[in-house]
Amino acid sequence: MTAPSQTDPAPPGPSERSRRRPRIDDTDAAGLGRGRAAAFVAPALLLISIFLIFPALWTLYLGLTNWRLTGLAAVEPEFVGLDNYLDALTDPSFHNSLLLTLLFVFFSAVVGQSVLGFSLAWTTRRLRPSIRSLLETVVLLAWIIPASVIAFLWIALLSRHDGTLNALLGTEGTAWLLEYPMQSIIIFNIWNGTAFSMLLFSSALASVPPSQFETARMSGAGTLATLRDVVFPNIRGHILTNTLLITLWTFNVFTPYLITRGGPEGRSEILGVYIYRVALNEGALGRGAALSLIMILINLVIASVYLRLLRERKP
């Protein structure tokens, strides 16, 4: 996730920064010397380097070996060059999982969470603050509770024999998780993640100048025209930020594993789950590492597309 302050996606950033900028570079407001400033930052940098960056670099190296969890290659892994990558790129289950991940991200995040989150923010914006806050809290509940609890709730809801959904719909014996695995985890992820979009768009809508709404109303613009001419131009930065963040989160999400284990027969095996299976269940650590790197690269591509869009927005 990248939101460097220099290209602050959300107004009112720019004015504040330009006001601050000139003095901060030459003066030192609190008398913090260069040395102490570095010493303040160093411990945090060090910890992250050891426990996140170093493992990631190690993963980079592992991807070039045939290291395995068990067996001969566990003791003396050999350097195999780009074999893992070639294998991965020609493996049908990798293609399958990439496609499923695309569908998952597109329908649950880009379409589901954004649209539902925006609609909720839009329809609740005129409610009394206390009532709106209640509704936000309810939606937030679904986001905040632990993934393990969420998995349990969805298994309980969709279970074949005594699931709540079957009891409510009278569809006795429908195995939702087996028959509609992708639909199940997509709806699950919408339910789980909409809170963020809703809260973000709520604050975005509050930043639209009321006078512009007033003008639109006076000129007799309907809801759609108001959205198109007043709301969207004002909140483009928010929309971009929201799309980037939920895309990255959804792309890296692992919770569906707890609900469907990627099954049946890989039909809900999104990328994170697929890598987990290859690396830890099947023990092909080198192969898993190569796949991880591909996943990291996709993350970087998504982030840089976002940054480019953001830069174009600001002349």
């Binding site: 990248t2 426990f51 990631a56 993963t59 592992l62 590492a289």
Partner: peptide, 20 residues
């Protein structure tokens, strides 16, 4: 430095679990 901090948020946990 700020970008360095943020870039770690782009690491899928699956990618770092084996070395850890």
């Amino acid at each position: 430095v700020l970008f360095f901090f943020i870039s770690t948020k782009m690491l899928p946990v699956v990618a770092v679990i084996v070395p850890i």
